[in-house]
Write a protein that binds this DNA or RNA. Structure first.
Length: 491
DNA sequence: GTTCTAGAAC
DNA sequence: GTTCTAGAAC
């Protein structure tokens, strides 16, 4: 149980020792990223005062609550293109950590660490107490009643999952995550469209301003017209004049085509057969279609930029449909997702709109990085076949060995193929009938005949209960459950 | 709470 | 060979 208390204390430890992970700090609280974010943006505002959880708050803590909310607003304001309405702010009633922490989490819930139904229920049931609710309870009652363990367990395991952005309901985490991915993808498109439109609007404003400047400076007769406004600005006096142009003035257009009641001369008549070149709006509209069409939202793309972009024409979410139906053996009895299957679920991405950089995505540990551990790099993936890809890479557990000493268990310095061979030798050692009999009959023999390959640090040590008592001859798993129900104690 | 992984189960 | 589970470690 000691390791659980260590884990519970990890937040305080991080607060005290890992100052570099703190984003905003005050004398009463600090803002840091959640270690396992359940959405694209997930922050913790950790209280510095030794308060274990929200149910220990009293009325005198209302100023502390307000201060934590101030920090929450500060960190939300730092996130571009997201407003406070996109965030949930509050406390977990069944918090695991032993220090009061306010969660600030974006409502997309698109994250690698979002893996369990209980993760969803922690934020979308009575397990989550919003800041407003906590404030109201402290003001009215002066305290916050804790949830019973039974009630918390019941709320955690609710399987009716209601989308937090629409009326969609499902009973499987798989469908919910596929659905949430659509919401996230749409929002990313909206943000991208907004950025592009802002950029285009800015360019249009600048070009209109230039046009107005040129119209004020342009001579009245076509014979004196000069083709480029930049040439006029080469004269310093002209340049000064352009700086005092008022937006309200409507000067005669520099383009003869745009002047009302203008009769073109011979030269202009000849030009009329040429393409219409001087229409800035049209020019930039075409530019926008060429440059930004792939990024437009389907609805905006249809009305503003001409034909629908490719992702709006076909079944854009066709690649996602495979996630709609839960596949067999993807979920276990606890409705959690197997790690490997989960990565398979995340792997396919639309080629039309690559996802935005994930600020929380963990970078691989480059010390142990090799081509076998790089499932997302397509160039490396091409080089890996099923046959030469080991299921796991042994970690360098034998660093204590002196250099030059050839240890049979030291697979960290070997090639992967050699590591595979070393792994294949393990069952042969286990099948030694004498050794197996010794393990079953006398635990002390284990100390006398240790596994030589793993002599320095055995990966698994059978417990004394396995070789003692009435479960001696039962199979191992049954003996484990009967003699050592630690799992039940943890839960 | 989380990840990782050996061994069991399929 | 693949998936699940339990235990260890953080």
């Amino acid at each position: 149980m000691e390791h659980i208390s260590v884990a519970r204390h990890a937040l305080v430890k991080r607060l005290e020792n890992n100052k570099d992970t703190i984003l905003i700090e005050s004398d009463r609280a600090a803002v840091m990223k959640d270690r396992y974010p359940k959405a694209q943006y997930h922050f913790l505002i950790v209280c510095k005062e030794d308060i274990a959880n929200v149910s220990l708050l009293k009325q005198e803590h209302i100023p502390l609550l307000d201060h934590m909310m101030d920090l929450a607003n500060q960190i939300i304001e730092q996130q571009n293109h997201l407003s406070s309405s996109n965030f949930l702010v509050g406390f977990k009633m069944d918090a695991f950590m032993d220090r009061l922490s306010m969660h600030v989490i974006s409502n997309d819930f698109y994250s690698v660490s979002f893996k369990k139904v209980s993760h969803w229920n922690s934020f979308h049931s009575d397990l989550f107490l919003t800041y407003q609710a906590a404030y109201a309870l402290l003001r009215s009652q002066g305290c916050i009643e804790p949830l019973s363990k039974e009630k918390a367990l019941e709320l955690r395991s609710v399987t009716t999952l209601q989308c937090n952005q629409c009326e969609f309901k499902t009973s499987t985490l798989f469908e919910l995550k596929g659905h949430l991915y659509k919401h996230w993808n749409d929002r990313e498109h909206d943000i991208e469209v907004k950025k592009q439109l802002e950029k285009i609007t800015q360019m249009l404003d600048e070009s209109k301003l230039d046009e107005q400047e040129s119209n004020v400076e342009s001579p009245k007769s076509p014979e004196d017209s000069k083709p480029h406004s930049t040439q006029w600005r080469s004269n310093p006096s002209d340049q000064n004049q352009t700086n005092v142009i008022s937006r309200e003035t409507k000067p005669t257009s520099a383009n003869w085509r745009q002047r009302p009641n203008h009769v073109p001369n011979d030269c202009e008549q000849q030009q009329s057969t040429l393409p219409y070149e001087n229409h800035f709006e049209r020019h930039f509209q075409n530019y926008a279609i060429r440059q930004h069409q792939p990024y437009l939202h389907p609805l905006l793309g249809q009305s503003l930029m001409g034909p629908s972009p490719p992702f709006a024409q076909g079944n854009y979410y066709q690649s996602l449909n495979q996630f709609q139906q839960p596949q067999p053996r993807m979920l276990n009895a606890n409705n959690t997702i197997n790690q490997q299957n989960y990565m398979r679920f995340l792997a396919p991405q639309s080629t039309e709109s690559p996802p935005r950089f994930n600020p929380f995505k963990q970078t691989p540990n480059m010390a142990n990085f090799n081509r076998y551990q790089c499932p997302v790099n397509p160039t490396n993936r091409q080089n890996v076949t099923i046959h030469d890809k080991p299921r796991w890479i042994p970690k360098p557990q034998y660093k204590q060995n002196q250099p030059g000493v050839d240890s049979p268990g030291n697979s960290s310095n070997k090639l992967p193929s050699e590591a595979n061979e070393a792994k294949q030798t393990k069952p042969q050692q286990k099948q030694n009938p004498n050794a197996k009999a010794d393990i079953c009959n006398n635990s002390t023999v284990l100390k006398e005949q240790p596994n030589k390959a793993n002599q320095n640090k055995p990966k698994w040590k059978p417990k004394a209960q396995h070789s003692q008592g009435p479960n001696n001859n039962l199979n191992k798993s049954a003996g484990n459950k009967a003699a050592n129900p630690t799992k039940l104690q943890h839960k």
